[in-house]
């Protein structure tokens, strides 16, 4: 009950304190396409990519910040800083990296960095104004990691949009994400091809600023 009162108060304060430039965090499980999306936005508006994308899990192991992005939509200008977070996970086994051809030493080092990255991402929850929760629409959305991320944002009163990514893949099912989290705005996109990216910009402007 107290947390609901706190949430309502936070929402009210946000209306009065609308920021001209938002700090937008990208959260989600590992390999959902957060960095691909950050690269897409950065390439579209700053003309450069910011992070390396790989099929090996935990490619992003440090928080990456892209500052002063100005996006123009039909509804005007949108100014934001993007904070691309390492993927949230409940387990990190270095042996899973060895399957991608890494040496034992490199795999262990990557695992150590990955665990620190998860901690860093959780700590950043206190420093973002709004969040894009990036989920892989080819995967089952009912995972505890997804529920924990969204639950933490709700508890802190941080506004969010759920991005159902990877809709370019034949097995994508963005409707399952919308069914899993009906209380939130869900925007299906493909960060890889840019499909529906304009709708995402408009949704950010409408719901997060």
């Amino acid at each position: 009950m107290l947390s609901e009162l706190k949430k309502s108060l936070q929402k009210l304060l946000k209306i009065f304190n609308r920021k001209k430039q938002i700090q937008l965090g990208f959260y989600g499980p590992v390999n959902a396409g957060k960095t691909t999306l950050a690269n897409r936005i950065s390439l579209d508006w700053l003309g450069k990519e910011v992070g390396t994308v790989s099929e090996v899990p935990h490619e992003t192991r440090h928080v990456q910040k892209i500052e002063n992005i100005v996006v123009t939509t039909n509804n005007g200008e949108l100014k934001m800083n993007i904070v691309d977070m390492p993927g949230i996970a409940t387990q990190v086994d270095y042996k899973s990296f060895k399957a991608f051809g890494m040496s034992e030493e490199d795999a262990k080092a990557r695992a150590r960095e990955a665990t620190k990255g998860v901690i860093e991402a959780i700590k950043w929850l206190d420093n973002v104004d709004a969040v894009l929760v990036v989920l892989d629409s080819t995967q089952d959305p009912y995972t505890q990691v997804n529920v924990t991320i969204i639950g933490n944002l709700e508890a802190r009163g941080i506004p969010m949009i759920i991005v159902a990514n990877k809709i370019d893949l034949p097995e994508a099912n963005p409707d399952s994400i919308a069914s899993a989290f009906p209380q939130h705005v869900v925007v299906p996109i493909s960060a890889a091809t840019g499909e529906n990216i304009e709708k995402l910009y408009e949704a950010i402007q409408e719901h997060l600023t």
Binding site: T90, Y94, V118, I122, L125, T148, N152, A155
Partner: peptide
């Protein structure tokens, strides 16, 4: 568990992981 407790559990787990 509360969502914040879940985040704390994940954070504490990450600190305890060893190869």
């Amino acid at each position: 568990l509360e969502p914040q407790e879940e985040a704390e559990l994940i954070e504490a787990t990450m600190r305890e992981i060893d190869a």
